[in-house]
Every structure is written in structure tokens, then in C-alpha cells.
Design a protein around this nucleic acid. Structure first.
Length: 833
RNA sequence: GCGGAAGUGGCGGAAUUGGCAGACGCGCCAGCCUUAGGAGCUGGUGGCCGAAAGGCCGUGUGGGUUCAACUCCCUCCUUCCGCACCA
């Protein structure tokens, strides 16, 4: 008997799978499909156990579903555009494509070393023109529909890098590479995708995702979209007949309590207001101070509210009251109208501001079922709905009634209207970067921004190029790229030199997997109809907003283009926990990375896989423990030893089918093992189908193996065909989690066919059933004794035995049992007074 | 501040529907085997009292519902994550 040689076994079966195309899946309308996907990885070059946990979870499900007869699509690819390739290129003087492809090759080798059951024929890499041409194609379709447009917009600019930063690259107001350099704001022409056209669809269709997506992801998306219903109300500026200020409010019912109108420091009307005002110079100094002061995000909410009187007045259109116009730092230019009405009694921010600057406070909404409010006794704003007072003709209405009536009246009198605002902004996709998808637009002096015709796609990214990391997009320095021809007038044109945000690449990649080599279209709708939606999408919570909202947006656009029929791409989203080392997420910068390939070499990939499954349920963070993985290594060794010890004897024997098992004639040992095997199978099946708690599945299989070991010598009192059946069940249950070892055991037991073709076994209830149950006897809810009871014994009989139990009888002697609770097969509780 | 998740032995975690808290694994202790063990096997391992039988306590805190609560309800505390002056 030889030892468990994980390296040899794993290499052997990986070769077999590769040669037989074991994981290839093609559309087959006759079979039910299952699409399981892990989020598109960025090819950074290294794979650590955090990545492997993600892929292992997906692989376990893919392999299990195959055993259940599903046609399983399980693809992988690379999110291969992006800034790190450019930075590496600058630092090491390697072309980005070379750097990227060598990383991909390394990572692919690690994935293969872990035996993940990917259909490699469908592999994609987003930096290849065969892929990114379809990014361009989608951009053009959106351009045609007005969903891609160009406008001037503020961008983040790092003066040290001399380049634009994505929002994600701004950390606490500073450049991610220069942590002490404040990011500046700069105006540039940018391309945007009109995701806001789908705000309501993105929000409403979330109803279909409830139950399938984690609540917190849905909540985060809902907050991100930030829909808010209210009213826009126009305040005229006193003595400036042609000027007015629009205010957005969700509480128009409190408008009689307004004591000022407050503008954001960047409000466009301010220069006009200041014109011709006495004391203007001092005011502008104050104004500049507020505008200059950049706050870090974390400070914003707690920062001291500051402002000043702008020297002008506005007229409350409901009351006719004249209100001072102020400017304050807490009003955001980007949200709503950039101006608010200040109602100190009914808004906490306004309360704080009014208190500091001595603005009057007026209660206009009284609570319905609490003591009436008095302005001079309030310590904070009251934001509850209630009944209106001191509100002219609206006094006496409830807030709900007033909201409707006042909004309608404002519309009728043409100084306001109902309005819904969103926090969601259009998606700026222009990046002044080289390593990304070229935006398929040329600029012609005569015709303006002109789309590149479909037949000229792809607009190829030039590959030999000098990168400095400074200034504008490096593409601007490549004349062969920049100089183009206008497709409208044929005249000379300048090509767009910005590239697309890489989130565009990952917004639709999972459609491409279904038809990855299609040269005529992004995909064939027929094929997508078969495979979609994704049944299980597995990834980290860090993508809860960006990727998962962008890809929902793309799906909706594709639906409007008539390419697909479904509304949502992902039926069920699973967000797995991180792998931690020393309580921190694994990362190069923390220096706490546990390399996947190192684990495969040291223990074998089956052990590494089993450990990541066993150490914690998949949705929880997992603290890496070298001792923990040792334990799993011991377990797989034990499995191998137990089976191989008997395999020779069992090779030629036919495994007994469950139907042939006759419990009446089975030996005690056979009964124990059959029962344990079927109980294990029942609970593992349940874990796989309903709970996804693979940690308990592993624990159950460990118990089965412990039982096998406890029954040694197994050949005594055990028919070989029964033992073989138990071993089969063991191998099949291990197959999704430790596939190489399982395949080896399967072969050792003399099976000629591949384990890949085996189906998940069915447990037999009558074999899983115990003949006896341990019943707990409680007195007043406290355990006092335990008895063994045969299955099928009547309730009265069980209670009778409980009362006569030698430990129980003296305790109830002479006492009155006022109540008896019986839970069949579990417990008897005798309640004494 | 708002929203979400979670608090169980020395550690990771289990308890599927309100029914024996601590499965399984790690670590630790003892023993067997061994020339040897960072191999393998067997047993023990929440705390307190007790020689033992057994008893009491115990799932972040305090209360409640129940024959019975890690589980349900209320209070408070702590940690992690997300959002962050969104009018």
C-alpha cells in the first residue's frame, strides 16, 4: 500500500480531463442548463488563496451540478485592460500587452493546477481586439440612441502625476500614488453613458432580485441610485425681476417655516447676485474661502457648517415673505438644484445653521400624538410628519395632504412642480489612458464628433508606443493613430485619444462567454437565450455597486436593442467572504499573501480546496491557518489509506445497489456503515442544494471516514459488495470538493468509466433511518436522564418508560406531573409544580 | 448620524423547524506503536464544586414570552462593513 501522492494523482487526472475535454459544454436545448460564474479576474500575475476560495466555491457548484445532470457553463477570462499594466510598463519598460499576457499565462497555469473545471475554449481576454471591438460596437449603438454623449465635466487631476484620476483612484481627497498630494478639479470634455435613463428600471427591477441577491447589495444599490420624490419651487429674487432661485425639497409642507434660502458656494447665480452690492469685496473674500475649502469625504458630514449672507433677498412664493439669501458650505451644488430653503424647526442641518447664525425658527408642523412644539424650547429639529400650523390656507392639513395640495397649487400657479431627483449620475467613461478600449469617434473640423462606422471596427490600439505616464493620453503622441479620416465628409479628422473605463469591458463579458468566438456579433441571441440568466454569480462584495450596477445597465440597454429578452443578467448573486491572514485581507502591500501555487506544491490542490471549504461557511471571512490546512491534509491522507487498504480486494466486486440491501439479513457492522453513509449523503445533499454550507459537508464526510476507521478491520463481518458501495458513496460525495482524489479512488475501486460521468447518488430514507433513538428525559426543562427507544414505539409507552427510568422515578415520586411534553424521537419533558 | 451584518470553549466553527449547546477540525493532555517522530492509532479536553455518583453555572448585557430560548420579542453594549450634510 502506497502513500497518498497528491502531486502525482492531481497531474494524472488533470491530464485526463484536458485530453477528454471533460468540461466542455455546448448549447443543448434538450438538457437543462446551469450557468455558474466567478467574477472576471484582473491579471495581476499572482493568485493567492483569497482568489482560490472564490474559484473553489464556483467549481464545487459546477461539478455538483454536472453530477446532477445539468449542462453546466463554467467559463473564465481576464479583465486585462487597466492602469497597472501601464504603470508596470513605465517602471520595468515592458510593453503592457506583454506584461499582461505573461501574467495571464502564469495565472492560467495556477488555475489548471487547481483543477478548476473551466471550459477553456471560451476563455476571453478583454485587451484583445476580438473582444474590445464589441465594446466599441456597443458604444456606437448607444451613441445612435443618445445614450453615449459628450459634455464638459470636472475630473480629478493629480498635479504630480500630471494626469487624470478615476474616482476610485482618489483616496480621501488625495492621489492614490501620492498620498499627500491633494487632487485638483479640472474641466475636460468627457464621454458619458446615460445610465440615468435607466434609474427607475434599475430600481424597479430590483424587486425580481429580492431573495436571489444579498439584501445588503440591494440596499447599497438602492442608496446609490438615491431616488427622492419632492418638489421644485421657484423663489424670485427681490429687486432683480429677471432672476430666480429654484429650490428642491421633499418637505414642501414646511415651507411656511422657511427663514432663508441657501445656495451652494458653486451656485451659478452667485456672481450676478453679488453685482452692485455694498460690501461686495468682503463677501467675495468669504465666498472664495468657502469655495476653496476642500473637505475630505469623511469630514464632510461632521464639518462645522459655515456660511454668509449674500446681501440679497428672495420671496417665498407661498407666503410672500421676504427671506435673506445665504451661501453655505453644507449645500451641495451637484445635488437637486444646488439651493435649499432653510427650515430650522424641521430640518436638523438647517437647525444647526440657524442656531449658529441666529436665523429665526418657526414651527409649522405640530406632531399628531405628542406634546406641541415651541420654537424657543426645541433642542433639535422635528422632522416627523404632523399637522400644519401657521401655514396660511394650509393650516390644519396633515403633512401628507399638504405635500399633495401644495405641490399641485405650485404647479397651477406656475412657480413649482413635483420633481424626483436621483443621486445616480451618468457614467463618465473617458480615461486619459493608453491601456484601454479606444473610443470609436473621430473629430472633424467640419462635421464635429463623428462615429467610426461599424465596418471599420475594431479601432485598434497601437501596440508599440512610448509611455511616460505624464500629461494627456499617450495615444495623442501616435500620429498613425490620431490622424484619421472623417467618415462623413472624407476630410481629415483627429481620432479620440481617450480610452474607455475598464468597467465597460466587464459590463457585458458574461454574454460573450456563451458565444466567445463569434466574429459577426457580440453573441448570437439564440445562444444567450439558452444560457441566460446566470444561475449563480460568485464574487466579492467590493463590486456591490460599480460592476453590478453597470452590468445591469448594459443588460437593459441590450434588451432595448432587441438583442436579449430578459431584464436582469444574474438570478442569484453570492458574495463570498475574504481570506484573511493575520486579520487582514491578503494583499501584496500587506505582505501577508499565501500563494496558491505554494499550497498546491506543499499539500496538493485538493487539500487546499477542502481547507478553504471547511474553515468557514463561504459567505464569511476566513482566517488562514497553516495548522488548519494540515488538518485537512491529514483527513485526505486518511481517506486514501482507508480506501486503498481494501481497494485490491474490491476491484472485481460489484457494488451492491441500495435496492438489494436487506436490512433484516445485514450484519451489525453493515447496518452501522450503511446507515451512516446514507445519513451523511442525505445531509450533504441538503447542504449542496439548500444551504451552501460546505464546511458542514466536509465535517459530515469526516465523520463517515471516522466511522469507517472505527469499524476496522472492515473485512470482518462485512460483505465486499456492501463495503464497495459505501466507498463509492464516499468518492462521489468528495468529487465536487476534492475531485482528483475522488477520481483516483473511483479508479482504484475498479470502475472503468470516468468519475466525471458518474451521477450524484440518491440516499435511501429507509437506510438512513435509525432503529433506535436516544430520547432525552427532562424534568422542568432540565435534562435528568436519557433512554434508548425503538422507532415506532407509541407516545404513551415512551412516557411510561421515562417515568419508570431509575433516575427519573425517585425525582417524580410523590410529586404531581402537571404537564407532559413529548417530541417524538427527541425528548420527554415532565413538568412538576 | 443613517443603513447592513455579526457577537457561542484557548482558536476556526456546529446546532436544518423553539427541543441534549459546543458536531467536525485545530491546539492542548495522557496512553499505544516506534531506533526515532513535525508519521499513525486510542482516549480525554466549556467553567466551578465533588474522591465519585452527581450538582450548579454557561451562547456580548439586562429584561420578557415559553414546559423548553444560541434560536422569538424588547433594552443596552461591542465589533466589522457600506453610505456619508442628498434638502
Amino acid at each position: 500500500m502506497s502513500d497518498y501522492d497528491s502531486q502525482g494523482i492531481e497531474a494524472k487526472w488533470q491530464k485526463v480531463w484536458e485530453e477528454t475535454g471533460a468540461f466542455h459544454a455546448d448549447m443543448d436545448p434538450a438538457r437543462p442548463k446551469y450557468y455558474v460564474l466567478e467574477m472576471l479576474p484582473y491579471p495581476s500575475g499572482t493568485l493567492h488563496m483569497g482568489h482560490m476560495r472564490n474559484y473553489t466555491i464556483g467549481d464545487v457548484i459546477a461539478r455538483y451540478k454536472r453530477m446532477r445532470g445539468f449542462n453546466v457553463l463554467h467559463p473564465i477570462g481576464w479583465d486585462s485592460f487597466g492602469l497597472p499594466a501601464e504603470n508596470a510598463a513605465i517602471k520595468n519598460n515592458i510593453p503592457p500587452r506583454e506584461w499582461t499576457n505573461s501574467n495571464i499565462a502564469q495565472m492560467k497555469a495556477v488555475c489548471k493546477r487547481f483543477g478548476f473545471s473551466y471550459d477553456w475554449r471560451r476563455e476571453i481576454s478583454t485587451c484583445e481586439p476580438e473582444y474590445y471591438r464589441w465594446n466599441q460596437w456597443f458604444f456606437l449603438r448607444m451613441f445612435e440612441r443618445g445614450l453615449a454623449y459628450r459634455k464638459r465635466s470636472k475630473v480629478n487631476w493629480c498635479p504630480q502625476c500630471q494626469t487624470v484620476l478615476a474616482n476610485e483612484q482618489v483616496v480621501d481627497g488625495c492621489c492614490w500614488r501620492h498620498e499627500t498630494t491633494s487632487v485638483e478639479s479640472k474641466e475636460l470634455e468627457q464621454w458619458f453613458l446615460k445610465i440615468t435613463a435607466y434609474s427607475d428600471a434599475l430600481l424597479d427591477d430590483m424587486n425580481d432580485l429580492v431573495g436571489g441577491w444579498p439584501d445588503r447589495v440591494l440596499t447599497m444599490q438602492q442608496n446609490w441610485i438615491g431616488k427622492s420624490r419632492g418638489a421644485r419651487v421657484r423663489f424670485d429674487v427681490a429687486q432683480m425681476p429677471e432672476k430666480s432661485i429654484d429650490v428642491f425639497t421633499t418637505r414642501v409642507d414646511t415651507i411656511y417655516g422657511a427663514s432663508a434660502v441657501i445656495l451652494a458656494p458653486d451656485h451659478p447665480l452667485l456672481p450676478a447676485l453679488f453685482a452692485g452690492i455694498p460690501g461686495r469685496a468682503a463677501m467675495e473674500a468669504e465666498w472664495n474661502r468657502l469655495r476653496q475649502r476642500k473637505l475630505r469625504a469623511a469630514e464632510l458630514a461632521t464639518a462645522e457648517k459655515e456660511g454668509f449672507f449674500a446681501g440679497r433677498f428672495a420671496v417665498n412664493p407661498f407666503s410672500g415673505e421676504t427671506l435673506p439669501i445665504w451661501v453655505a458650505n453644507f449645500v451641495l451644488a451637484e445635488y437637486g438644484t444646488g439651493a435649499v430653503m432653510c427650515v430650522p424647526a424641521h430640518d436638523q442641518r438647517d437647525y444647526e445653521f440657524a442656531e449658529k447664525y441666529g436665523l429665526p425658527m418657526k414651527v409649522v408642523v405640530q406632531p399628531l400624538d405628542a406634546a406641541p412644539l415651541a420654537a424657543d424650547r426645541m433642542r433639535q429639529a422635528s422632522t416627523e410628519y404632523g399637522r400644519l400650523v401657521a401655514s396660511g390656507p394650509y393650516a390644519g392639513l396633515t403633512s401628507e395632504e399638504a405635500l399633495a395640495k401644495m405641490t399641485a397649487d405650485a404647479a397651477a400657479k406656475q412657480f413649482g412642480k413635483a420633481e424626483t431627483t436621483y443621486r445616480l449620475k451618468d457614467w463618465g467613461i473617458s480615461r486619459q489612458r493608453y491601456w484601454g478600449t479606444p473610443i470609436p469617434i473621430v473629430y472633424c473640423k467640419k462635421c464635429g464628433a463623428v462615429p467610426v462606422p461599424d465596418k471599420e471596427l475594431p479601432v485598434r490600439l497601437p501596440l508599440s508606443i512610448e509611455l511616460t505616464g505624464m500629461g494627456q493620453s499617450p495615444l495623442a503622441n501616435v500620429p498613425e493613430f490620431v490622424n484619421a479620416k472623417c467618415s462623413k465628409c472624407g476630410g481629415p479628422a483627429r481620432r479620440e485619444t481617450d480610452t474607455m473605463d475598464t468597467f465597460v469591458d466587464s459590463s457585458w463579458y458574461f454574454y460573450r462567454y456563451t458565444d466567445a468566438r463569434n466574429e459577426k456579433a457580440p453573441f448570437d441571441s439564440k445562444v444567450v437565450r439558452y444560457w441566460f440568466p446566470i444561475d449563480r454569480y460568485i464574487g466579492g462584495i467590493e463590486h456591490a455597486i460599480l460592476h453590478l450596477i453597470y452590468s445591469r445597465f448594459f443588460t437593459k440597454v441590450m434588451r432595448d436593442l432587441g438583442m436579449i429578452e430578459h431584464r436582469e443578467p444574474v438570478k442569484r448573486l453570492f458574495s463570498q467572504g475574504m481570506v484573511l491572514k493575520d486579520s487582514r485581507a491578503m494583499s501584496k502591500s500587506h505582505g501577508n499573501v499565501v500563494g496558491a501555487i505554494d499550497m498546491a506544491h506543499k499539500y496538493g490542490c485538493d487539500t487546499a480546496r477542502v481547507y478553504t471549504l471547511f474553515a468557514a461557511p463561504p459567505e464569511k471571512d476566513l482566517e488562514w491557518s497553516e495548522q488548519g490546512i494540515e488538518g485537512c491534509s491529514r483527513f485526505l491522507n486518511k481517506v486514501y489509506r482507508v480506501v486503498s487498504r481494501h481497494a485490491g480486494r474490491l476491484r472485481g466486486v460489484r457494488a451492491m445497489t441500495p435496492g438489494e440491501v436487506d436490512l433484516a439479513t445485514a450484519s451489525a457492522k453493515e447496518k452501522i456503515l450503511l446507515r451512516r453513509a446514507h445519513q451523511t449523503l442525505k445531509r450533504v445533499t441538503n447542504d449542496f442544494e439548500l444551504r451552501w454550507h460546505f464546511n458542514t459537508s466536509v465535517a459530515l464526510i469526516m465523520e463517515l471516514v471516522n466511522e469507517l476507521q472505527a469499524q476496522e478491520p472492515l473485512e470482518e463481518g462485512m460483505r465486499p459488495e456492501v463495503l464497495k458501495k459505501v466507498f463509492h458513496m464516499l468518492a462521489l460525495m468528495l468529487a465536487p470538493m476534492a475531485p482528483h482524489l475522488a477520481a483516483e479512488l473511483w479508479e482504484m475501486l475498479g470502475n472503468s468509466g470516468s468519475l466525471m460521468d458518474a451521477t450524484w447518488p440518491a440516499y435511501r430514507e429507509e437506510l438512513a433511518k435509525e432503529e433506535q433513538f436516544e430520547v432525552v428525559i427532562q424534568i422542568n426543562g432540565r435534562v435528568r436522564s436519557k433512554i434508548l427507544v425503538e422507532d415506532g414505539l407509541g407516545e404513551d409507552e415512551v412516557v411510561d418508560r421515562a417515568r419508570h427510568d431509575p433516575r427519573i422515578a425517585p425525582l417524580i415520586d410523590g410529586k404531581r406531573v402537571v404537564k407532559t411534553v413529548v417530541v417524538p424521537r427527541k425528548l420527554v419533558n415532565l413538568v412538576l409544580r
